[in-house]
Amino acid sequence: MITGQGVTKTFRQRGGVLGAREVRALRGVDFTVGRGGAVSFIGESGCGKTTLGRIIAGLEGHDSGEITIDGVAMSSLRPRARRPYFRRIQLIHQDPYSALNPTRTVYQALLAPLALRAGQTGRTASWVDERAGELLGLVGLDPDYVLPRYPHQLSGGMRQRVVIARALTVDPEMLVADEAVSMIDVSLRLGILALLRDLRERLGVSVLFITHDVATARYIGDDGELYVIYRGQVVERGPVETIISAPVHPYTQALLSAIPVLHGLERPGEQPVAPTGTLEEDKPDAGCLFARRCPFATARCAAEVPALGRTGDIPQEHACFHPEARSVVAVPADRA
């Protein structure tokens, strides 16, 4: 189990025409990913979801707050001692084309981490070959076909499966999948999503899914939890299906309203919400971060900061003074 409390991260850029600039990527984020669980972070680019994923995978430090892995606070350990913990968390990149070395065959790509693993666990060289085949089978590839091939000889979907197989070589507890299907052909995306769901069930591995496409988050598992992140802050959190069907935060509503409607198959939701202004014009930090783009903002929103929590009988957590469930997503069209 991996938890975070009050995780913050600020990037500082020095120099440039305007002098030093600060980007507050994360402003105090709490999260919990249970064993075998599925958590999805959604939000626009620049909202901090990728930074959070990288921090969780141990590839990036954070400024304050605490990350706890299986009950051990990472701040209590020296950097070297943290490594075995973070090895349990493997990152799967968005781009399967650049994640694999083009001069190495799939066999070579799997060999290095497996040999390391064999050394750690006192296994023989024959185990390495056996395990390579086993892992490829697990991700739905034919080892005989794939092992001798170079990445350019495989389709995007096959490459992403190889990347997942490579991540599994170290027996991780959690996979962090950052936009893992956005570069995969549409007809093959569901296959990768189904694979992640399957790995959860068969290996008990948990999945942290980072995406801007909310619909894909449903396919990691119907027990999944959704975190909606806006400018480094979680603004709504709860079960995926609840948030899609009855979002209460206006930002979530704007995000869901923006998803294309398949006219002919679907008709638009009844209460779409359009944000005013754009992200880049949205600078001030006082009050609710979304207030300036929010069509429902009041004077209170500009002055006070709403905290993430539950109010009334709303099932999910939210950070809004005026939460109101709206039906914004498209619904199936009535057949003529």
Binding site: D185, Y219, S245, I259, V329
Partner: peptide, 26 residues
Amino acid sequence: RGLIQAIPRLVGDIGEARALPGRPPT
């Protein structure tokens, strides 16, 4: 038909959606 069925959707039964078998030709 297969392509439309393969699109992750916000509503409806997750089980109804399925990837197209095979892969696009090069």
